[in-house]
Design a protein around this nucleic acid. Structure first.
Length: 790
DNA sequence: AGCTAAAATGTTTTT
DNA sequence: CATTTTAGCT
């Protein structure tokens, strides 16, 4: 015990300690002065379980970032009552710092840190990879390079990282393949066909959904069967599930659900492994907790179980993924899992203006069984919510164009301020086409993804087989592409033998001459197997990019694409361009990834979403589904198709999941910062059918006084007058992502700097002809090339 | 085996 | 409506 000089001033140690801690808290409050009191509490509560109920726009991200920063910089200093040994020396510094800068306060606080965590001891689980990267970036300004070492990612990416190390314990290969929904569907359909199940009665998609729902709860096929009762659909599906799981394991493949489920299995069956990670992670944080499924919830309980330094953040009103097995129970029962849990509510909204917030509150109030909260704001009333009733979806799109044009031309807004949100991707078409026609620059999220294009999937399949030859699904995809005279008959024989011998298709193909029934096809099969082997051998001694190039050439796939393009008269050679663009993705990955291996590249390709790749900075209107918009905000939001049967959707109304649709509406409304435009058409054509439609029931839940309707009565007769659409010279050179024209200097991630020779509009996308400084001239689609101004 | 033309099929939302 | 799947033909 040091002898405190303050004792000379007549203070006892206890008195001094009290004063020291009071001063310490004052400094903390000063340092985190930009946060409101509940936010500060969330940041300061470092040890022990914590549930943060964060309403929309309540500064949730700021809290999470600063909480992690606090954990790493100051540790448990705020909560701790213990006096540091050098408290005596610190105290005058504290008094000094109090009058000084933020940096000064920070440095004193750092000296008072109690058990600050090393970055790699912090696990932060986010909903998207994009969110994880944003966290890391924001933390970098707070922590510097250390921020890189934080374990931040989605449940899936974190679990894959763990599984890569330990999945051998479960009898899977470490180079496992990750199957996407497409692959899964193929396997399920094949199994059902083999079992002579009638697709009319039970579709592969339905079976897939049922299995997935059970996997979300980590049920085994046996457990699913037990749970099925007399429901034959579930019984049948459980049977398929058993076979499906065997088949995936044999192929060394995991589906999205397996990634979570098997991690849980790993931890349960190998407690030593769980112990290792429990020890490693001093702190566990989970964002968007309302959208976790039971398996994920158990993982959190497992990983955080020891130290109980678990912080989950979420909003039960924004739970919108129950169709994917997420359950709001996880958040409602968090204090059941962790009885010591402290609960912090963030209810002050910093995002939206008054009328928008009123509308959101009013709508969500109709839901039963919520934790209950009411968002409030200090911001003014703002604009009324603009409600319009166009006759058709054509007018709906034109009205949006008119509004955007008007506000951009007036200099009031830029394109990037606007977002168009819709319930279904199918609704994006009208809008997109109208945008192209009227030269409104936009970026679209969802729908056709780059790596879902046929040629990209083919190339990825080659790479998957090279990485994991046991991968039967991917092998089947490319064994005869380009044509190698390995047809259905040969494939069927191959499958029969493989099934009989318990071998993979590749193994059988490698030894095809050992089976007399293969006949003359044996040579072809062996040749194919040798080809794959040569690719793998090449990969062992060459870089990733070189290997991919080798695969493209030796497989004959590039030549195949070229011939196909010529035959189709496709002078643009679009597919080839896409593959070249893919190659630049590979190159970029190789340059930036921590571990530039084929396995980790394939992993990244499997786990990134197009939301992750949505590039910021371009001045363009954003178009996305309401689901994708979760966590985002925009100054102006256009909500289209706000009609009964669409939003809430037909299916939802039938199934009685109206409350989830209402939450979705709540999410949509709360994306808007300053202005919200709601559209519902009198008639809409969807899937070739035109129907009369009435406004969403949720619209009626928004108070009249918060709205400004362009029509007076609820009748179908239109008194809507079309917005004046000015056909003036467009402010932007083209639609789509394009912001370049001939003569512009640009930079390409793969090919380097260059100059645009020509730019032509191709159905909403831009085709650029670019002369690169390296001497080559290339044609590149605007939507794939991540071109930047030089 | 491979092509064309007709039929089916989708009507959520996605890691 | 637009795309994908399948049947039926050569």
């Amino acid at each position: 015990m040091p002898v405190y000089t303050y004792r000379k001033e007549g203070k006892t140690v206890t008195e001094f300690a009290k004063e020291f801690n009071r001063k310490k808290r004052e400094l903390f409050a000063r340092y985190y002065g930009f946060l409101n009191p509940p936010q500060q509490e969330a940041v300061a509560t470092v040890n022990g379980p914590l549930l943060v109920l964060a309403g929309a726009g309540s500064g949730k991200t700021t809290v999470l970032v600063n909480r992690i920063g606090n954990i790493i910089l100051f540790g448990n200093a705020w909560q701790s009552e213990e006096l540091p040994d050098d408290a005596e020396q610190l105290y005058p510094q504290m008094l000094e710092a109090e009058r000084g800068s933020r940096a000064g306060i920070r440095s004193v606080l750092e000296q008072m840190a109690v058990d600050p965590a090393r970055p790699w001891r912090v696990l932060c689980i986010t909903f998207t990879n994009k969110a994880a990267n944003e966290f890391k970036e924001r933390l970098q300004t707070l922590l510097g390079e250390r921020a890189r070492d934080i374990w931040a990612g989605t449940f899936h990416s974190v679990c894959v990282r763990i599984l890569r190390r330990h999945i051998g314990l479960l009898g899977y290969p470490t180079n496992f393949t990750i199957y996407d929904t497409d692959d899964v569907k193929k396997v399920i359909a094949a199994i059902m066909k083999r079992r002579h199940m009638d697709e009319k009665i039970l579709s592969p998609k339905a079976v897939m959904g049922l299995i997935s729902r059970y996997k979300d709860k980590s049920y085994t096929p046996e457990e699913m069967l037990m749970d099925a009762g007399k429901d034959t659909r579930i019984i049948k599906s459980a049977e398929v599930y058993a076979e499906y799981q065997r088949e995936l394991k044999q192929s060394g493949a995991l589906d999205f659900d397996d990634i979570i489920m098997l991690t849980e299995t790993l931890f349960r069956e190998h407690p030593a492994v769980l112990e290792q990670y429990r020890n490693q992670f001093d702190y566990v944080l989970v964002d968007e907790f309302q959208d976790t499924n039971p398996s994920q919830n158990r993982l959190v309980a497992m990983l955080g179980g020891g130290k109980e330094n678990v912080c989950v953040v979420g909003d039960d009103d924004q739970s919108i993924y129950s169709f994917r097995g997420a359950t709001v129970e996880n958040i409602l029962q968090f204090d059941h899992t962790f009885p010591r849990a402290k609960i912090v509510r963030l209810e002050q909204n910093y995002r939206s203006t008054g009328h928008i917030l009123n509308a959101a509150n009013a709508v969500i109030k109709h839901n039963k069984g919520r934790k209950g909260k009411n968002l409030w704001t200090k911001a003014g009333e703002g604009e009324l919510i603009h409600v319009h009733r166009p006759m058709t979806q054509g007018e709906e799109a034109l009205a949006i164009v008119g509004e955007i044009r008007k506000q951009v031309n007036a200099g009031k807004r830029k394109y990037g301020d606007f977002a168009v949100l819709y319930r279904m991707t199918a609704l994006s078409n009208n809008i997109e086409q109208t945008f192209v026609k009227h030269r409104i620059p936009y970026r679209i999220c969802g729908g056709l993804r780059f790596n879902e294009r046929r040629e990209i999937k083919d190339v990825l399949s080659y790479l998957s087989v090279v990485n994991n030859p046991a991968d039967n699904v991917r092998l089947r995809r490319i064994i005869n592409v380009p044509k190698r005279a390995i047809g259905d008959t040969t494939l069927l024989k191959l499958e029969t033998i493989a099934g009989r011998e318990g071998m993979s298709l590749f193994e059988v193909a490698s030894n095809a001459d050992g089976y007399s029934e293969m006949g003359k096809a044996a040579g072809k099969l062996k040749e194919f197997a040798r080809l794959i082997d040569s690719m793998r051998e090449f990969g062992e001694t060459h870089s990733l990019t070189a290997t991919v190039e080798y695969v493209l050439q030796s497989s004959g796939y590039m030549r195949f694409l070229a011939e196909e393009a010529n035959a189709d008269g496709d002078t643009e050679h679009e597919r080839e361009q896409n593959v070249k663009e893919f190659l630049s993705t590979v190159k970029m990955f190789e340059e930036t990834a921590e571990e530039p291996t084929l396995a980790s590249f394939l992993e990244e390709m499997a786990l990134v979403s197009d939301l992750d790749e949505l590039e910021e900075g371009q001045d363009a209107v954003t178009m996305m589904t309401v689901h994708s918009a979760k966590g985002l905000e925009f100054p102006v939001v256009f909500l289209v198709g706000f009609e009964d049967g669409l939003f809430p959707g037909m299916q939802a109304l039938m199934e009685g999941s109206e409350e989830e649709e209402r939450r979705l509406a709540y999410v949509a409304i709360t994306r808007a910062k300053e202005a919200l435009y709601i559209y519902h058409c009198e008639s809409r054509m969807l899937y070739g059918r035109t129907d009369l439609r009435s406004a969403s029931r949720f619209l009626g839940e928004i108070p009249e006084e918060d709205c400004e309707k362009s029509y007076k009565n609820p009748s179908r007769r239109s008194d809507y007058t079309r917005e004046a659409v000015t056909f003036s010279r467009p402010a932007s050179p083209a639609g789509g992502q394009s912001v370049f024209e001939a003569g512009d200097r640009i930079k390409h991630p793969f090919f380097g700097a260059g100059e645009i020779l020509t730019a032509q509009n191709m159905g909403g996308d831009m085709l650029y002809e670019i002369a690169f400084d390296s001497g080559s001239t290339k044609r590149i689609m605007g939507s794939f090339a991540k071109l930047t101004k030089e």
